[in-house]
Simulated scan of single mutants.
Amino acid sequence: MYTEDDIRRLRWQSRRGMLELDVLFVPFVEEAFADLEEADQDRFVKLLDEEDQDLFVWLMEREVPADPDIQRIVRIILERVQPS
């Protein structure tokens, strides 16, 4: 279970310095992270350990992550911002 302090730290970690990532990650942590299942929260934390260049190509849908856990959380983030 993630505490409010944990979520504040994740919000800080979500600021990557690359605008394309920041506009996806920061609102995601602020608005959606707390409502995720714990396994998906863990996946998001794992995602933040990845290199910015990899995150960029995955979130811009230029490549698909090899790791199924990363694939799942990338899809969750993208579904949140893409029109249905």
Rank of each mutant, 00 (worst) to 15 (best):
E51P: 02
I77T: 02
L24E: 00
T3D: 11
M60R: 14
A32T: 02
Y2C: 06
E63D: 10
L19R: 08
D49I: 00
R80N: 07
E4K: 09
I70P: 07
P27T: 03
R8L: 15
E30H: 03
I76V: 14
L47Q: 02
V57K: 09
Q13H: 12
K46A: 11
F33K: 07
V74M: 13
K46V: 01
P68N: 08
E37I: 01
D67T: 01
I73P: 05
Q41H: 05
L47F: 12
M1T: 08
F28P: 05
Q71T: 01
R80P: 02
R80Y: 08
L78F: 12
V45M: 09
P65N: 11
Q53T: 03
I73M: 05
T3W: 13
E61P: 04
S84L: 11
R11E: 14
D5A: 15
R16K: 12
V74K: 13
D6L: 09
R8W: 07
D67P: 06
R62L: 14
Q71P: 01
S14H: 03
V57E: 11
F56W: 06
W12A: 12
W58M: 06
G17Y: 10
A34N: 04
V26F: 15
Q13L: 15
D22K: 00
E61M: 13
L78R: 14
P65R: 06
F56N: 01
E20K: 05
I76L: 15
K46G: 03
Q53N: 04
F56H: 05
V23G: 06
S14E: 01
W58D: 03
Q82V: 01
E37D: 10
F33L: 15
D69K: 10
Q82K: 14
P68I: 08
D40N: 15
I7K: 14
R16T: 02
D40Q: 12
R43K: 13
D22S: 00
R62K: 13
V64G: 04
L10V: 01
M1F: 13
F25V: 00
A66K: 07
D35Q: 08
P83E: 04
S14D: 01
M18P: 02
P27H: 10
D5Q: 13
L24A: 02
D52T: 00
E4N: 06
E79F: 06
R62F: 12
E63F: 14
M60F: 09
F44P: 05
D49G: 04
D22Y: 00
W12S: 10
M60H: 09
A39Q: 09
P83G: 04
F56Q: 01
D54L: 13
L55N: 08
E30S: 09
F56L: 11
D54G: 02
V26W: 13
Y2M: 11
A66C: 04
Q82S: 12
L48P: 03
A66V: 08
W12P: 00
L78A: 08
E37A: 12
R15Q: 10
F25G: 00
F25L: 00
L24W: 03
D40A: 07
L48M: 11
L47K: 01
E38V: 10
D5T: 07
R43H: 07
E30N: 11
M60C: 12
R15G: 04
T3P: 12
E61K: 15
I73K: 07
Q13F: 14
D69H: 10
R15V: 03
V81G: 06
Q53Y: 13
D40R: 08
V26P: 08
Y2S: 11
